[in-house]
Design a protein around this nucleic acid. Structure first.
Length: 468
RNA sequence: GGCGUGGUACCCAAGUAGCAAGGGAGCGGUCUGCAAAACCGUUAUGCGUGGGUGCAAAUCCCACCCACGCCUCCA
């Protein structure tokens, strides 16, 4: 399979370090608030990557972190810790905040049919690993301590700093909007360990003792420490959002490789942003949409997933409710087709045709996860009247859904039918037999008022929940 | 100011040189007591604008216009 590597800005053939298994690290959430659908788009992309790897037969060891400390709103030791902000806002302990939003995050993933990582790791439970890593960096001469007591990473000492992002430091920061931390030797240096001693932010609740005094770890160090702990000092794939390329991932590489003295990650994959009409999604712009917002508007979370699949992960995706309506309609049609295929197992399959579709599907998903094309393949398959039996179509669609993750298997049993509703359906059937269309239609109308849609199809009468 | 991405039908969106995917919406039809669903047909001589290269351009080159992102924390 081919994937686009940010390191080289090219599509490359994927070659794992070990023959059949893949180490995958994906940057997880900072758990101080709900995830918005822009965040979730990235997790959907990473899920697709993981599913494609699995579909290709690899064992995937997937690690995702939970950032529950040390993530300041600015890197310059003048911002606020996001967890602390939530603590003030909600009058809870840091632990309660982190637990609550971690739970909410996991529920979102589950609703979007995103596979859970093999290992979840919390920053607060790995501070000692981070300290050990900082000590290695220190020993190798890549750090210094500022007057404020913070431990900084010395970027000028690390050859190739910024290669991931193609950064040009001569022209960088000419329009920097933040004040430069005076304790840094160079503006692009970053904090490995925040010391409480010289910090303007003495109120920080979470703190640990360290060789550099009391304090807390910088944000970037957690991903380096935890990924290496679980995947080794050299592993296959690291993912995140594009925004992480110039700062977070650039710094992670510098820290990790200066600690171990060797190459850290082979492939970097980055998911593009979801944009609203007003631009990037941000609370300050008042366009913060969560999965719950969508569910409250009666959208199926899978419709959002379908929408994500319909745009390639390296393209900016425009989110609008009209687009989500479109995805929701598409998904209904898709599910209806699956239902019909399941009930009408007929038709004949011409030799080799199943293999053709499977080959085509594999080819497009292995071409840098081209899911829009994969959807093209499944629609062509559904509408192929001549070559494939319903049974084979059904089987293939469920197989392809291992990658798409739209939950196409097991779609029926969801609906719970109250007694009153089934009585009404029964009554309508009797009217229909007597050809009393007026009363039958009244019954159908009554069902609609109670939130159920009744449809007479060629395979019998079916009941659906009315979502709109 | 620097760097980068993109502009394809009414909407979303593939396609990076060889006849413009797919989905939604609309319109026409088939089926059905009706409705709905489903299915079939249909909707870009055209790919932001203007030049250029080439047998051939949405695709490569140049210029311009527009939108967005990054250079602050960020998916």
């Amino acid at each position: 399979m081919k994937i686009h590597n940010t390191l080289t800005r090219k599509k490359e053939e994927f070659k794992p370090i070990k023959k059949d298994s893949v180490g995958l690290y994906t940057c997880g959430p900072t758990v101080y608030n709900y995830a918005h659908i822009g965040n979730l788009r990235t997790y959907v992309f990473e899920d697709i990557l993981k599913r494609v790897l699995l579909y290709n037969g690899y064992n995937v060891k997937h690690i995702m972190n939970i950032t529950d400390v040390g993530h300041l709103t600015s890197d310059e030791d003048e911002g606020e810790d996001k967890i602390d902000v939530a603590v003030q806002r909600e009058q809870k302990t840091p632990q309660q905040i982190a637990d609550f939003y971690t739970q909410a995050f996991k529920e979102d993933l589950s609703k979007l049919n995103i596979l859970e990582p093999e290992i979840w790791c919390k920053a607060t439970e790995h501070v000692s690993d981070m300290i050990k890593l900082i000590q290695k960096i220190e020993k190798n001469g890549y750090s210094y301590i500022g007057k404020n007591g913070n431990v900084y990473f010395d970027t000028s000492n690390f050859a190739g700093y910024g290669n991931l992002a193609n950064l040009d430091f001569e022209s960088l920061n000419t329009m920097a909007r933040t004040e430069i931390d005076k304790d840094k030797k160079h503006p692009r240096d970053f904090v490995l360990w925040f010391s409480i001693k010289g910090s303007k932010f003495k109120g920080h609740i979470l703190k640990w003792t360290s060789p550099w005094g009391e304090g807390w770890p910088g944000w970037h160090i957690e991903c380096s420490a935890m990924s290496m702990k679980y995947l080794g000092e050299h592993f296959d794939i690291h993912c995140g959002g594009v925004d992480h390329i110039p700062i977070h991932h650039t710094n992670e590489i510098a820290q990790s490789e200066s600690a171990t003295g060797k190459k850290w990650v082979n492939y970097w994959l980055h998911g593009e942003f979801l944009l609203m009409k007003e631009g990037k999604m941000a609370k300050s712009a008042g366009n913060f949409v969560t999965l719950k917002t969508l569910i409250d508007e009666n959208y199926d979370p899978s419709a959002f997933r379908y929408m994500c699949l319909n745009t390639h992960y390296r393209k900016k995706m425009n989110f609008a409710f009209e687009g989500l309506d479109s995805a929701q309609n598409t998904l209904s049609t898709l599910i209806e087709n699956i239902r019909i295929l399941q009930e009408k197992q007929e038709g004949e399959t011409r030799q080799g045709k199943v293999e053709d579709y499977k080959k085509k599907f594999l080819e497009v998903i292995n071409d840098d996860l081209n899911m829009p094309k994969a959807l093209d393949v499944i629609w062509k398959l559904i509408r192929d009247e001549k070559n494939i039996s319903n049974q084979d179509k059904y089987g293939m669609l469920l197989d392809f859904d291992k990658v798409l993750g739209l939950g196409l298997g097991g779609i029926e049993e969801k609906l719970q039918i109250p007694q009153e509703i089934s009585d009404l359906i029964q009554k309508r059937e009797e009217y229909r037999k007597k050809k009393d269309w007026k009363k039958a239609d009244e019954a159908r109308k009554e069902l609609l008022d109670k939130g159920f849609i009744l449809q007479d199809t060629s395979t019998g009468t079916i009941l659906k929940k009315n979502n709109k």
